[in-house]
Design a protein around this nucleic acid. Sequence first.
DNA 1: GATAGTTTCATACAAATGTTTGAAATGCCT
DNA 2: AGGCATTTCAAACATTTGTATGAAACTATC
Lengths: 223, 223
Amino acid sequence: MPSDQTRTAILAAAERLYADRGFGDVTLRDIVAEANVNLAAVNYHFGSKDELIAELFVTRSIQLNRERLRLLQAAEEAGGERASIDAILRALVGPTLRGCLGPENQRSTAARFMIRVSIESVPPIRRIRNREIDHLRKFIAAMRRSLPGHSDVELYWGLHFALAMAQQTVRDSERLTKLSEGKCDVDDVEGIIERVVSVAAMALTTGDAASKAPARMLARDAR
Amino acid sequence: MPSDQTRTAILAAAERLYADRGFGDVTLRDIVAEANVNLAAVNYHFGSKDELIAELFVTRSIQLNRERLRLLQAAEEAGGERASIDAILRALVGPTLRGCLGPENQRSTAARFMIRVSIESVPPIRRIRNREIDHLRKFIAAMRRSLPGHSDVELYWGLHFALAMAQQTVRDSERLTKLSEGKCDVDDVEGIIERVVSVAAMALTTGDAASKAPARMLARDAR
DNA sequence: GATAGTTTCATACAAATGTTTGAAATGCCT
DNA sequence: AGGCATTTCAAACATTTGTATGAAACTATC
């Protein structure tokens, strides 16, 4: 049975360095120096640099998805197979925001790594990302149960916008802070979650789903 | 007076290649081959690879910002110094979405380049991005005039979310298409603009601004 | 305690990349 | 045409990068 010591050290060092400095300018040599292992160890244990990155991302993605599904399941059980749309959206965006926002000095390495992922999006990660769709479908299914009568298209857009707001807040919290001169408190994680959930839920539940967009189109002004 | 021919050819070739293949795997040699100029021409005319990228991005950003401000100004003039919040948001997200969505084969190179920018975000571009804040402040000012009585914090969040939805739609339209199995028509650009504007405006105008978030916090369920 | 399989190590390799150089070519003004 | 500045060019440079190699060290099993 392999001791796994070297492997683990590489993973930890790589995640930390990628989180701090981005994928662009962290080399295998940086990683092995940080991990105090030999250069060849990376290729021995992972095959290639890309597979190392992929393994890091897959591990964290699985954790994130598991946490999301745990919250979703809890919400559905509490509501008797039919969770409120708010609870569903909270299960979707909560884990990401809770992990990636909040006081900088207390964010985990894992969280900072995932922030990097959302900012830089390097090829080996993009390839894996496409498998996320099956996971999202489970949330669509829950939303369908929660909001019967809504067209699927509306549900897709609602989920898309919810993720958009969460992702962009993670990615660009710094810009929001600067723009608002600190008036938007990006450390108030729970407040932000409620904000995102509130807007997304409003988008999903307000107005007649089918006629909303066309009606607005008539009202648009010049050009 | 320099003929500018080489310079222009480099810019055009670089933009096309970056748009098609991303910043990661386009080298100076690829660019000069595409432009039919000598390798040293890039450093002669631009100083470095990063400055070439920066110039491309600055040019397109200026165009985008100009277009946004043009629409904003038109909306304010039409409404007598006070544009509707919808019109303001449309001026903000319209140009980006109009440029970067729609049938793939008819997107301009410039648009596809800006999509790349929003996906990959390479260092020389990140540095420039921070200057965008002054530009966004003009929209905050217009929103303040349009919605007097709203707290600035709400305006910042509204603008942030509007940009988030637009950006993510540009960045990830492919995933949305796959997730919805084509049911979300990402080629209906004007429809998407109205959708984004509608949700963002709703977020800004619904409920009492100050008490909205706290009220929702009380209603949140377990964990 | 010998042996087979696993892991570590120093080093080399090969390829790619941005940048520099100095000479040749070109264009421009008097 | 001559002389000066700008531009182009081929070639070389200096790194940096991920990966491969083969021997040494280690571990566990019989």
